[in-house]
Amino acid sequence: MDQAERVERFLAERYPHAGIAIVAGSTAREERTHTSDIDLLLIDDGLFADEAQVSEAATHEFEGEIFEVFAYTTEGFREWADRGVAQHRPVILHMLVEGIPVRSTTGFGELRAQWDAVLAAGPVLSERESLLRRHVITDLLDDLQDATDPLEQHVVAGLLFERMAELMLLVGRQWIGSGKWLPRRLRAWSPERADRLSTPLLAGDFPGLAARVGQELELAGGRVQAGFVR
């Protein structure tokens, strides 16, 4: 990782007490572009001057690079990691497990192994959440099939793709993502099903998208409409 020395200089200036520091994202994967920032996960009980503070998400400019910092005390990390797991989108756990450590403590290996097991197990979709997600998709599907305004069609189609992709992943015990990470996770899990869902969307084929979503919805348990109580 060619950014290691710059990262260490940044830490020395901005977060000198960080015991655990992990570079994640495109920098760790060596897939940087001209707009890439440096994602940095920090964990240490001595990070903040205010003893009541347990977390911080901050953007810094340093030596011409943008650093996106996610900093936590030990308890703060556990709290936010649990929250991410409950939401099926544990971003900081992926950073911890998949990133490159540039600083570590004696307990780092154990911490990483603990949360790696959680990631490997995958999310659990409750029956209640399944019903709610299928209800939302059912409504969006009907909206798309009824829409005639081109702007409405494009907006609803985008939302429908997102909600269906999330449900497909969750039924398959896969973590979801937001933005660019949703299609990436869908493709990593099943390139074929990702392609079948995305092809009509990219072509502006709204009837084709509706048909494909209907097929995936049946695989996930079917439509939910009349009788559903939120």
Rank of each mutant, 00 (worst) to 15 (best):
G214E: 08
I22R: 08
R173F: 11
G222D: 06
E218W: 00
L160V: 01
I43E: 10
G76A: 10
L40H: 14
H94F: 15
G99D: 04
A121D: 07
A86K: 09
R187M: 10
Q87C: 06
R32K: 09
D139R: 10
A52V: 15
E8D: 13
V91Y: 10
A120L: 07
A28W: 01
W181F: 05
V54E: 15
R112C: 09
P90H: 04
V213P: 02
A220V: 01
G177V: 00
W115A: 03
L159Q: 15
I22C: 08
G158F: 00
V213I: 12
E166S: 10
L119W: 01
W189L: 00
M1W: 03
T106Q: 14
L40S: 15
V118N: 06
L132I: 13
L125C: 02
D44Q: 06
E162A: 15
I20G: 07
L41F: 07
P150N: 11
W175Y: 13
H60N: 06
E65V: 12
V213A: 01
W189V: 03
A81S: 13
E162R: 12
G227R: 06
R32D: 11
R83I: 13
L96D: 05
A121M: 02
A86H: 06
F228H: 06
A194P: 02
E65S: 14
G179C: 07
H88Q: 06
G64D: 15
T148Q: 12
W115K: 00
G172A: 03
A211P: 08
A21E: 14
R128Q: 05
A81D: 11
R187V: 12
E79Y: 13
A226P: 01
P191E: 10
G25D: 08
M168E: 15
G172E: 06
F48A: 15
E152Y: 01
E127W: 00
T59Y: 12
E110P: 07
Y72E: 14
L144H: 06
D195N: 03
W115F: 14
L197D: 07
A120T: 13
E68M: 05
F108M: 10
Q145S: 12
P183D: 09
E216V: 01
G107N: 13
R9G: 03
W175I: 14
L186Q: 00
A211L: 04
R185A: 00
G172Y: 00
F10A: 11
E79S: 13
G158D: 03
Q114E: 08
T74H: 11
R173P: 07
V224H: 00
F10Q: 15
V23S: 07
I20Y: 10
R78E: 13
R103H: 12
V69Y: 13
T59C: 10
P101H: 07
